[in-house]
Amino acid sequence: MPASTDLNDVLQPGQPLPADSVMIAKALEILSASPHGQQLANFVEKKNIVIKIAGTPEPVGYLPDKKLVYVGFNRNNAISPGRFILMLAAILREAQQEAAGIKHPDLRAPLEEHKKVSMAKHEDKIWYICTIACELHDQVAFSDYKFLDELRKMGHSEALDLYLRQEGKS
């Protein structure tokens, strides 16, 4: 039985990880190395955005309040640093949308309005993390983070290909 599929690893009490504050500070520092990521880091500072890490069954970004964002993941199945950074960028971009007044429609609004607005917000978020991933990918210092591979693993492969074509990078 390969060690990677030993079922007893399901029972680990959670992988040792750096302190939350260290992970967040490092992620913001790396984001700041990209022009679009820098905008997000500036937004965090200027608007006093609180960033928290949560233990959640699945990797998730969560914006319950315009000044509070969570990045959640399973501590048994910790996400890579590259993925953490991109997830943080995505949820911060959503916070930026909200701050700019681009909100999801009222829950009672017609489905078509939801589709139009929420889809556009999602597409913008993906454009943003594709841009940051490319900006960081171009820097040798961050080659180990494999940002483009991480985007694909996150399920954004098709979007990344379209983005690269659109931006003339493919």
Binding site: Q12, P13, G55, T56, V60, R75, N76, N77
Partner: peptide, 21 residues
Amino acid sequence: TFTMTYLTDGTEYIALDGTAN
């Protein structure tokens, strides 16, 4: 939508975070 599930006896709430604990 964001979902969290808890084990509760009505007083204490234990968040199910994907680990066995």
